[in-house]
Design a binder for these strands. Structure first.
Length: 286
DNA sequence: CCCAAGACCTGGCGGC
DNA sequence: TGCCGCCAGGTCTTGG
């Protein structure tokens, strides 16, 4: 479930539940995530007031006075709000028990997620320091997140993508998934943005024109914004796990192999590169 | 530096 | 029904 829209929706869902509350207890049942959860993390976080929740790429940053918790949902992570007495289901690896409030429970069957703590400026963390630009404009209140690289304030720009792609022979889809270039564009939206921009995702990134990158940057912002808006509607009152509310993605290309193109009389086809599928219409993408 | 593959995991699905 | 292979929304790490 987690592409950037889902992570952003999760962030917004958690805000009213967590900000201003004290983390009374961190209960860890399974520490083997992408990296093992540090045994000292609960002590670091317990007793802290949550000052804010920011997002950098697909990392959620839970801010406290003495440090920051980094959370990543991996491929299958989600949060839900549960009663204190709720029975623990499979794959529910940890709880954040808040003062005077709900318990926030993390579930992650594949355990590719992460839960880390740093007491240093979080933007200097090794997982964040080399990340590329944010795809969407950074709003003023989130500035502290550190997404200050080229063009972050305006979201990703066509000129930036054009410059960074010169000389690259890998498929455009791979280029868009490269977090050192632009963050938050996952496999679904890479295909979707390419479809909307009329560019084949298997074209070499270095052989896409400046004008077409301008269009592509626009479509990346548009599709992510639309997905956040759609998810925001469905998940307004917090079911942080996306499958719950039948979150409709309105996909035009991704997952539609052998189905008719919605724009021309072609068929959507699937092609694998770097062991991952991409979907496009050979009729209207070039 | 660039690029592709490997690694980490579990679950759902279609086919036989 | 049961088993098997394939596929999955991520991304860090390694090796060429």
């Amino acid at each position: 479930m987690p592409e950037l829209p889902e992570v952003e929706i999760t962030r917004r869902s958690l805000l009213p539940l967590m900000v201003g509350r004290k983390v009374e207890r961190v209960v860890i049942r399974e520490r083997r995530l992408r990296w093992p959860i540090s045994p000292s993390l609960p002590k670091a976080l317990e007793g802290q007031i949550v000052q804010g929740i920011d997002r950098r790429a697909k990392y959620l940053l839970i801010r406290a006075a003495s440090g920051t918790a980094l959370l990543h949902l991996g491929m299958s992570g989600s949060f839900s709000q549960v009663d204190r007495s709720a029975p623990v289901e499979a794959h529910e690896h940890f709880d954040l028990c808040l003062s005077d409030g709900p318990v926030i429970r993390y579930r992650d069957p594949r355990r590719f997620g992460a839960f880390l703590w740093t007491s240093r400026p979080v933007e200097q963390h090794r997982l964040l320091s080399k990340l590329g630009v944010e795809p969407l404009p950074v709003v003023a209140k989130d500035r502290a997140t550190g997404g200050e690289a080229t063009g972050a304030e305006l979201g990703v720009s066509g000129d930036y993508l054009y410059e960074r792609s010169r000389g690259r022979t890998a498929p455009l889809r791979n280029f868009l998934l490269d977090g050192r270039i632009v963050v938050g564009v996952g496999n679904i939206y890479a295909s979707e943005a390419c479809f909307l921009a009329g560019i084949r995702p298997d074209r070499a990134a270095g052989r896409v024109s400046r004008a077409r990158y301008a269009r592509l940057a626009e479509e990346i912002r548009a599709v992510l914004t639309a997905a956040i808006a759609a998810g925001g509607t469905t998940l307004r009152d917090f079911h942080a796990d996306g499958q719950e509310g039948g979150f409709q993605l309105q996909l035009r290309a991704y997952g539609r192999e052998a189905q008719p193109c919605l724009r021309c009389d072609g068929m959507i086809q699937r092609r694998v590169a770097s062991q991952r599928s991409m979907f496009f219409c050979a009729g209207c993408q070039a």
